[in-house]
Every structure is written in C-alpha cells, then in structure tokens.
Write a protein that binds this DNA or RNA. Structure first.
Lengths: 209, 209
DNA sequence: AAACTATTGTGAATATAATCACAATATAAC
DNA sequence: GTTATATTGTGATTATATTCACAATAGTTT
C-alpha cells in the first residue's frame, strides 16, 4: 500500500505533467519528473511500479497517458465535491480559492452557526449548520473541511460523520478522535510555521559550526 | 537529528500541554500526551529522549517545565516575525488568522505587486514588493510565506532569499528550487485534498472487500 | 543489421523510523 | 521499612521507505 508521501508525489508529478502538456511535450523521462518534483528518478519509477504504470525502456513515458493514469488513481476522473464547516478566515479563503476547480475539486457549500454569515443565494451558498446533514445526503457528498476554532472541531467532525462524510481535512489546531472507517488529515498552520522555525534555526546553527 | 514528523509531534504535545495547564494540571504522563497527540506513549518518550527531556520514573513530567523545554526547542521563547508575499485569498486569510499571536508568531507585513492592495497604515501594512528588501533588512526578518500564483513563486522565493530570509512556507502549487542554506516547506492545498480523496477511496474499497 | 547507448524496472541493500521488551527507579501501600 | 506497582528510559528488534546496482530492452548510430 502506498504511503502518504507517495500520493503527494503523484500529485506533484501530475502538476509537472500538466505544465509539460501545456508546452506540447509528448513524452517524458523519469529524470524530468524527478527534477520537477525534487526527488530521484528511481523514486519516480518505484512510485509508478507500485501502481503498475509502465513506460518504454529507453522511450520514457507518454505525457497524456501518464496524466490519465495518475488522474484515475487520484480520483480526478470526476469532480470531487467538498463542503466546509466554519466560515472564518480560512473557510472563506478556501471557498474562493481558484486552484481547486482546475483540479476537479469543487467546494459546493459552506456551513456556519453564525446567522450573519448565511447566504443561500451565493454561487457557493453559506448555510446553517442544521442543514448540513440533509445537504450532504441529498448531494451525496463524501468529503469535508473543518475550519472552525479548536473547541468546536470535535463536534464538527461528528456532525460530518453522522451525515455520511468519510474524508476530512481538519484545520483546527487539535487532534481529533475519529473512528477507523473515515480518513482525517490534520493541517495545522501554526505547526507548519513552527516546523520552519525549528529547521531554519537548526540549519543556521549547523552551518555556523 | 529529529525529523519533520518529530517536530510536528512536539508542537502537538505543546498544544496539549497548554490545554492541560489551563485546566491546572501540574504533572502529566507520557500516556496522557500520547492520547492527546494520537501516538504511542513510547513515541512520546523517544521524542523527549532525543532532546534530553526527562521526567521522573513513576512521577511523570511537570507541565510547566515541559512547556518551557518544548517552547525553547520550537523557538517560542521569543516572537518570530514573518512576512507574506501575495495578498490574495490565502495571504489575506493568513494575515488575519488569530491562531498565530497566541503562539509567538507574528505576521508583520504583506507585500504585493498590485497597487490597489497597498495600505501602509493598516495594523499589518500591505506594501509594494520593491520595499520588501529594505523592510526585511531593517526589521531583521528571517521567515516568509509565499502565497502568490505558481508562475510568480520562484521569483518571490528569490526576492526573499536575496533579502536575507532563510525559512519559507510555500503555498504555491509548484516545487521551488532552493539553495541549501535555506529551508522551504511546500504546503499545497490541492495536494492535501487529493490525498484525502485517495485514502478515503482506498479505505472504502478495502472495507468493502 | 550489428553494435552501442539511454532508459526502464526491480530485487537486494541500506537507511530511517517506530515498536517492543524490559531494566531502573520513584512513589504508594501496608 | 519492606514490598508492590506504575512509570520512565533505552538497547534491540521490527517495520517502512529509499537508494543502489544492474539486467532487460527499445531506440539510435554506423
């Protein structure tokens, strides 16, 4: 089974391939993708072999075919719909983020307890939390994003799970308790910055020695 | 040398410890922190041993002491200043994100090429890109965030590096070329969602078998 | 068409990270 | 004060991920 890093790399290969396609490239070598994704060529080929993606010895890979194969693995053969709970800073930015549509990801609705944020007529409607369950069931939504404050995050998770959502990205700075049948990834902005601070300090110190 | 995951876990332990402190906890066991960070107790102790953090056999760890030790490792003994390049959706959300101040992280200025976004009188000023270098040097900034579109990201990185910034979080969906003396972490929102889609689909399929 | 070369694909080796097993020991119980 | 017990701390082991080494082979050159 592939690990998280491997899937992240697939996304990066796909990004690079889309750029190459835009430049009318027809074929590509593991070495090219390695450069684009800042990994080794063997890593690229090992990743591909895990998914039975093969090229031609000495001939490389066909760009179109490779995009198609990776897209299927990443679920990009159809639009994937997400909802967002919590329309604060982060929630609002996500709803308007232009990068998703290009990649077959659609944020179809936001939910918040604050009535002043509700707007059912907007292109992407902001709805009361009570309507989440019906909305999710009616539209067959499987994915959600939690962008509420830490104290509200566990409850937000449970509402989502009860409605049938199975994959969740959590921006709240707290570790959530999830049942085994769902996938929750945590993305903590403070933690990301703390990481950069640590490794920059470490690198600087090491460099001075 | 600790790896990235280890430092992420330290941040999570610290988060949990702050909550325990708010509840007037005086001591804590590796087992408690393990629950909070969703890892094993041995992992917690191994992480601590890497930094020579020790507790008392059968007595656990003192909350205050532990917070202080982890804070020092993560550079939280002083405020760490960041700037942001690119005041679009993401950049703006970050500038107003309330979670940073609590954690000794301060976003001190934003920069953009679009003059309509400039505002030097705001609490956190938005300045022209040309002023970045002077601002960074005068204020001794070491950290930055890239929140520009992909085509502008490499140039943004180089501007930052020339000004003396050494640690960077990159939100642009592209892999940047960086010299060895700096630290660049990529955080790609599309990629994060693709990851969730993949593992949710995988888990669902596996569950159905 | 034969020889050469660049590239893939993968088993084996290595490196890295997590877990196990248990000794050391501080605290609690009696 | 002695015994029992809960907890830490860590060397040894196992698991996981990456890199190495090289055989296979498609394309290129002569």
């Amino acid at each position: 089974m592939p690990n998280k890093s491997c899937i992240i790399r697939l996304s990066m290969y796909r990004n690079a391939l889309m750029r190459l396609k835009a430049l009318n490239f027809v074929k590509v070598f593991s070495d090219n993708l390695a450069d684009a994704a800042r990994v080794t060529a063997v890593q690229v080929r090992k990743d591909f072999s895990l998914f039975n993606i093969s090229g031609k010895r000495r001939g490389g890979y066909l760009v179109d075919e490779l995009i198609s194969q990776i897209s299927t693995i990443l679920g990009k053969d159809k639009v994937q719909k997400f909802i967002v709970i919590g329309i604060g800073n982060i929630g609002r930015a996500l709803l308007h983020y232009p990068g998703f549509k290009k990649n077959e990801i659609e944020l179809v609705a936001g939910f918040d307890i604050d009535t002043s944020k509700h707007n059912m007529d907007a292109k992407v409607p902001i709805l009361p939390l009570e309507e989440l369950s019906d909305f999710v069931k009616e539209n067959g939504i499987r994915f959600g994003i939690i962008a509420v404050p830490d104290f509200a995050a566990q409850e937000a998770l449970e509402v989502m799970l009860r409605s049938g959502i199975r994959g969740i990205l959590n921006f709240a700075p707290i570790c959530l308790k999830e049942p085994p049948e769902c996938v929750v990834h945590n993305l903590n902005l403070e933690t990301e910055l703390e990481n950069i601070i640590y490794f920059t300090n470490y690198a600087t110190e090491a460099g001075n020695k």
